Amino acid sequence: MRKEELREQQPIVWRTLGNALRDQRYAHAYLFYGPKGTGKEAMAQLFAQSILCKERIDGFACEQCNVCRRIAEREYADYAWIDGSETSIKKSDIVRLQEMFVKTALEEDSHKIYVMNHVENATGEAMNALLKFLEEPVSGVVAILISDQLESVLPTIVSRCQCIPFHALNRQKSYAQGINVCDAYDAYLLSCAHCSGSQMQTISESEEYQHARYAFFETAQRLVRSVDDAALFLQLNGYPSKGKMTGKGSFSWFLDMMIRFVKDCAQPQITCQDVQYRSLWEQQPWEREQLIAILQILLNKKDLLRRSVNLGLLADQMMAELKEVRR
């Protein structure tokens, strides 16, 4: 997401962080929270760059200098990015972070910054270790925590951060941006996640999203006829135990697509103009009570995905439960 989009879509966030940059007075910890697709990760990187950049433009990072490029590539010595999107953040990750950040800064600037993406996916031990780290702040260290689910973060961690809320982009505006850069289905689905046009383009072109889309349409086409057929496809081609694109990110998108489809099946009309998707919607065989049961199963698997799980087993369990619904 470009700076111009961030400034337009998150004006309050932009102004709040801009004031901190102007005064060069930073909280020891920030918590960026809000729905997926609201630019939290992009803003975290930009804010880190802006703290360290010597060539700021209008208060924010130039994004072109050596420091900015190294942060973007995660090669800046006093900058760390811990990502909990694919695997749980563990206590050992926090311990390594502490060991790294208590040492003297290696770069010219005295600030050291770490970003913890999807902090809600930290284990209990990791949460407690992080809390202790936040309770004993190190001079010059700035923490940026990111969460899609604030309610899953320890309240004691939340209370020690300056909380920065990110608000979702209007769905109609999101769709209008997306239809110019991707096809009708992707614009429809990603506008439901309130993504911006540039985010839609990046996401829709990614391998993990493309695999999720392929798995969704193939699974849904089979599911309306036979749960066993759908289960076999997922096991062999969708999310087998071994495979290049069977990570959590892809399976998360797959579940998002399934959840959106089931919700749409409960509606008398849908706005999606994609021919293949509309055909699936017209063929769906479930009664309302079945749709509610299916939705609960999918939401449960979405929640379980936050933990360390075997995707193949999770997919098998999901299909076994869906089979019971059809009886």
Score class of each variant (00 low, 15 high):
T219C: 14
Q49W: 01
H167Y: 13
I203R: 05
I144L: 11
L223Q: 01
C265T: 14
C161A: 13
V309P: 11
L190A: 09
S191T: 12
A105T: 11
F47N: 01
Q162D: 08
C163K: 15
L322T: 07
V224L: 10
I297D: 05
G18Y: 04
A184S: 11
Q201L: 13
T104V: 09
G238P: 00
G178I: 15
N66R: 12
T123F: 14
L52N: 01
A293E: 10
L46C: 05
D93S: 02
Q235Y: 04
L131I: 05
K36H: 11
I294L: 10
K263V: 15
S250N: 11
S279C: 00
L280Q: 08
I82P: 00
H28A: 04
R225T: 09
Y26T: 04
Y79D: 04
I12T: 14
A168W: 01
E324W: 09
Y79Q: 06
A266Y: 12
Q267T: 10
K40W: 06
D83R: 00
S204I: 00
R278S: 04
F32M: 11
G18C: 10
K173P: 01
S50P: 06
I292Q: 07
Y188F: 15
A27W: 09
N170S: 08
D316V: 12
A48L: 05
Q98H: 13
E125F: 12
P35G: 10
A129E: 01
E282F: 03
E99R: 13
K36F: 04
M200L: 15
Q283I: 09
A230G: 02
S279V: 00
H167R: 12
R213N: 03
Y26G: 07
L106S: 09
K40R: 12
V138N: 02
H167A: 08
Q24Y: 04
I89K: 02
L6K: 11
E207R: 06
N300M: 01
S241I: 12
I270T: 12
G39L: 10
F47E: 05
Y185Q: 03
L154A: 09
G37A: 11
D316I: 13
V181I: 14
Q201N: 13
C53M: 08
M100N: 15
D264Y: 15
L313C: 10
C182K: 01
V227M: 06
V13N: 09
L130Y: 03
L234I: 04
Y79A: 04
P240S: 06
Q199V: 05
Q273N: 09
A293I: 00
A42H: 07
L31T: 04
R74M: 13
G124M: 14
R327W: 08
C182F: 05
A215Q: 05
F261S: 02
E5G: 01
G18K: 06
M258H: 02
T104G: 00
M319W: 07
S226T: 08
R327T: 12
V227A: 13
S110N: 08
L311W: 02
L236C: 00
E8M: 08
S308R: 11
E5F: 03
Q9D: 12
L190H: 11
A215F: 07
A61H: 13
L190W: 10
L291G: 08
K302A: 07
C68T: 05
A105H: 14
Y79P: 02
M257Y: 05
C272F: 08
L189C: 07
K132Y: 05
I71M: 06
K323P: 01
I57S: 10
L17G: 10
